[in-house]
């Protein structure tokens, strides 16, 4: 029996649409318009339409391409590592019971630390001179001179990613722990009766149950990382040179130090398109996987 058509609950999505149109829709439209204009606030001149020349400039801008690469490394690198760590910990602590179950709670604690604090905490711990990481590595004899974690082009990106991974692991750990409880017990028992080994138990029985949740969690995290500003800005401000300049940092610099609004908006638009393509592609993949 089909439910009677009751139009009012179709409207229940309206508040969401009204708010989003007000707070996000208008700015998006404005960003599109700005991206086709030459608008440098500091010049004191009004905005003038320039068609697609901002996009042309973008194409020839090495910093844009570098920040695109950095964004990809930062986003996907952090997510992959965090997924692996989160998955490993979830599998290993799955059967912990009694007092041992508190271990799972402890593994979640980093999530409660505000992101801005994480950024400063890691900056402080990885300071080349007064940081505890170099001191520990020195004491253990692993290094002889201080590693320039945040102040060398080689290490800055991995260090920023490490801070990001630290905040992301609990999220994946929680997702995987939750999804492991949805693996039907009889399936696991059946496999056990068949004397499935640890690896095939994980690979053949559990992973298929984790795949769907993992992919949604990954999508959420990818979008979050793509937009992550506070951590990078507080730790390196995009430096040294452009080694940790991601798109969001580059846009911030263009918009709030050069006040080159047209150019910054063009990057914003490209960024929106890129993520949309990624999301569409990803949702397809998701639908195929869940079939």
């Amino acid at each position: 029996m089909k439910p009677r058509r009751s139009p009012w609950f179709d409207w229940m999505v309206l508040p969401t649409i009204v708010i989003l149109a007000f707070v996000i829709g208008y700015p998006i439209v404005r960003t599109f318009v700005l991206s086709t204009q030459n608008y440098k606030v500091l010049s004191g001149l009004p905005a003038t339409g320039v068609g697609f020349s901002n996009y042309q400039q973008l194409y020839h801008d090495p910093v844009f391409w570098q920040s695109l690469r950095n964004t990809a490394v930062y986003t996907f690198g952090s997510v992959v590592v965090a997924v692996i760590i989160g998955l490993a910990l979830a599998l290993l602590t799955e059967h912990m019971a009694g007092p041992w179950r508190y271990i799972r709670t402890v593994l979640l604690t980093p999530w409660a630390v505000p992101l801005i604090v994480v950024a400063f905490l890691f900056r402080y711990m990885f300071d080349q001179d007064s940081g505890v990481v170099n001191a520990l590595l020195r004491d253990l004899g692993l290094i002889h001179s201080n590693v320039h974690w945040l102040t060398s082009s080689t290490w800055a990106m991995p260090t920023v990613m490490l801070a990001n991974i630290w905040t992301a692991v609990p999220f994946f750990f929680l997702v995987f722990t939750a999804s492991l409880t949805s693996v039907p017990t009889d399936v696991v028992e059946a496999a056990r009766v068949d004397r499935a080994g640890t690896w095939s138990m994980i690979g053949r029985i559990k992973l298929p149950y984790l795949l769907g949740p993992a992919m949604i969690a990954v999508l959420i995290m990818v979008i979050n990382n793509f937009n992550d500003f506070a951590k990078i800005w507080a730790m390196t401000q995009g430096g040294p040179a452009y080694s940790t300049t991601t798109l969001v940092v580059y846009v911030y610099q263009l918009a709030f130090s050069s006040f080159n609004m047209g150019y910054a908006s063009a990057i914003g638009v490209v960024w929106l398109l890129l993520l949309m393509i990624f999301a569409v592609f990803y949702v397809r993949l998701l639908q195929r996987a869940s079939r």
Partner: peptide, 9 residues
């Protein structure tokens, strides 16, 4: 709508 960066908005 969640995809567009806050910085731009």
């Amino acid at each position: 709508t969640r995809i567009l960066p806050l910085v731009v908005l």
